[in-house]
Design a protein around this nucleic acid. Structure first.
Length: 111
DNA sequence: GTGTTGACCACAG
DNA sequence: GCTGTGGCCAACA
């Protein structure tokens, strides 16, 4: 079995984000089973070799800020607006656009 | 193997 | 509301 590296999983989840939705670094990290590795997620996206393939612009901070972008945050904001997301003062309503990631955790039992 | 850096998060003052 | 500090995780020199 291929042991997908951390960034690999990050790119995969990011690619699964539908248009018009966004996710947070912490959320992605948690989806990978590493809640608290938000930094690692940001690092992976910053180094993302799958540039235009992975919509890294759909990943923002938890407080609703854009965060950053390898080609400039302005570019990121423009792309998000193109998707129909309203950016206000460099911020967006994360509560509204928050997308539920598919946790690849094996839930042996549910509460 | 160690130390620094980074597109972060949470808490306290 | 903003600022400062500590913590977590991964990649790189």
């Amino acid at each position: 079995m291929a042991k997908n590296s951390f960034p690999q999983e990050v790119y995969r989840l990011t690619r699964h984000i539908p248009r018009g939705r966004v996710n947070t670094y912490s959320d992605i990290a948690a989806a990978l089973g590493r809640p608290g590795a938000s930094r690692a997620v940001g690092n992976a996206l910053h180094r993302n070799p799958y540039a235009p393939q992975v919509p890294c612009h759909r990943v923002v901070k938890k407080n609703g800020e854009i965060g950053g972008f390898a080609s400039g945050n302005s570019r990121k904001i423009a792309m998000l607006k193109e998707e129909g997301i309203i950016i206000k003062k460099g911020r967006l309503d994360i509560k509204i656009y928050a997308h539920r990631l598919s946790i690849k955790r094996k839930s042996k039992k549910r509460p």
